[in-house]
Amino acid sequence: MLLLVRAGFRRHSTYRLALLAGLTTNSVFGVIRASIVLAAIGSAGSAIGGYSAPMAVAFVWWGQALLGTVNLWGFQEVKERVRSGDIAVDFLRPLDPQLVYLAGDIGRAGINFVARGLPALLIGAVLFDLAWPPSPGAWLVGAASVGLAVVVAFAGNFIVSLLSFWLIEVRGIQLVWMILSGLFCGLYLPVPWFPGWLRTIADWSPWPAMLQHPLDILSGRLVGADLGLVVANQVVWAVLLLALGQVVLRAGRRRLEVQGG
């Protein structure tokens, strides 16, 4: 399992130029987004939705840092393997395919955090006045929350990818998934800034568990019992989505019709 994580890490570390390009994009957008939220808070004259200026800037930069770490946009590999029939090879291994891909994705998250996330965060910290987690405990819970976010995002995307067992083309569904996760994970705007009804939808969806929650912990907006609450929310979503993924995977395996021969 650890070896598979490492393999995922190493596989993605071979694409250095992509990592550098990702870092550049993340940083440029970080500057733009941070300037916008600062302008918004400046014109409001006070904290908005519980975010002071340094917290909002921290929210933006952690978000940029975790953007490549948490797999918000989905991945092509599983979908492609289902479509080409290569998924059959995964069933020839004495391991659960979901576990294999999860391990690989954790490795991918690792290299992206180290090579893309941390430098972006560093740039943000140099250019702006960021709020930091208020205690060592908050750092720890924040780290755990990032890990859970990676798992939740993976589990959701895995299910979307597996729909290829039944659909010839899942691009449309992936696009809808991307738009919804981009909106509801708090990437464009923090969820607490949403109008009430939209917030209610977000609160009942898995997407805040993919970004909003760890960002709230790392920017110091949430403290005390609230930390436990959001982490519990993440755990529930992780378990739910992984379990649903298992059900879909099993159904897909029975459905499998590899073409040819």
Partner: peptide, 17 residues
Amino acid sequence: NGAGKSTTIKMLTGILQ
């Protein structure tokens, strides 16, 4: 081709029901 060889193998290996 298409005689059923690969289908048999897929059933032997648990890929195909």
